[in-house]
């Protein structure tokens, strides 16, 4: 199971810290939605395309990202044209395409693991609100591990229900999957605690003082 769209590379975009790329995405999204102008949307679209080409990602990658969106873009632009005029249709379509391409650029140039690390660092600032970064990290890594496991369980249960002629029934699939899931949760929680996992002490650990 491929779990990331990341394309390896060494260009400037790959070396930028993930946090700054996310901030740039948020800023661009806010700007484009706050200032609905055709020239701005077209300029941004051209700039994003230039970023792709400048990073050596090429037209093939751009096409791979745009192709699944073409239907939605066409429907949205069509609705705009019908309701307003061609200019606003072009503006909305260009704006959305630019945003989606830029967002995909962030995903393409950042490893999921780096993105998660950036996310965990950002969580540090939420500490005063009672968020414990260590617990969030545990949940994140558990979920990443469970997704393929669960995919396998779902496939297994569907296979078993196919033998009973029930493969089309969502209920006959969902119930055994969820029950197995809940049993698994108990076992895993026990296993984690049996290995002495402390859900991260809230107070910082004493450092240095304990050495003889």
């Amino acid at each position: 199971m491929i779990l990331s769209d990341y394309i390896p590379g060494t260009g400037l975009l790959w070396r930028l810290p993930p946090g700054s790329k996310l901030l740039a995405l948020a800023a661009l999204g806010t700007l484009l939605l706050a200032v609905p102008r055709l020239d701005l949307a077209a300029l941004t679209f051209a700039a994003v395309i230039a970023l792709y080409l400048g990073s050596g990602l090429g037209w093939r990658v751009i096409w791979r990202i745009l192709r699944p969106m073409l239907v939605i873009l066409a429907v949205i632009a069509g609705a705009q044209w019908w309701l307003f005029d061609a200019l606003s249709a072009a503006m909305v379509a260009l704006r959305l395409a630019a945003l989606l391409l830029f967002a995909s650029l962030v995903t393409l140039t950042t490893r999921a693991s780096d993105m998660i690390a950036a996310f965990e660092r950002a969580l540090f600032w939420l500490r005063p609100l009672g968020v414990n970064p260590a617990k969030v990290s545990l949940a994140l890594s558990l979920a990443l591990r469970f997704i393929p496991v669960l995919g396998a369980i779902t496939a297994e249960v569907r296979e078993a229900q196919r033998a009973r002629g029930l493969e089309r029934s969502v209920i006959a699939t969902a119930v055994p999957v969820i029950v197995r899931l809940l049993k698994m949760a108990d076992d895993i929680a026990d296993a984690i605690e049996a290995r002495g996992y402390d859900p991260a002490p809230q107070s910082p650990r004493p450092t240095g003082d304990t050495r003889p």
């Binding site: 617990k135 558990l142 469970f146 669960l150 999957v177 809940l182 949760a185 895993i188």
Partner: peptide, 29 residues
């Protein structure tokens, strides 16, 4: 710890529900 495991499992369950083939209506997308 059990709460954390439950959180992770239901996140994963939502992902697994995405494995059922989607039904796309030719509406808003």
């Amino acid at each position: 710890t059990r709460d954390i495991v439950h959180i992770a499992l239901f996140a994963a369950l939502t992902a697994a529900l995405g494995l059922f083939p989607p039904l796309t209506l030719p509406a808003v997308g």
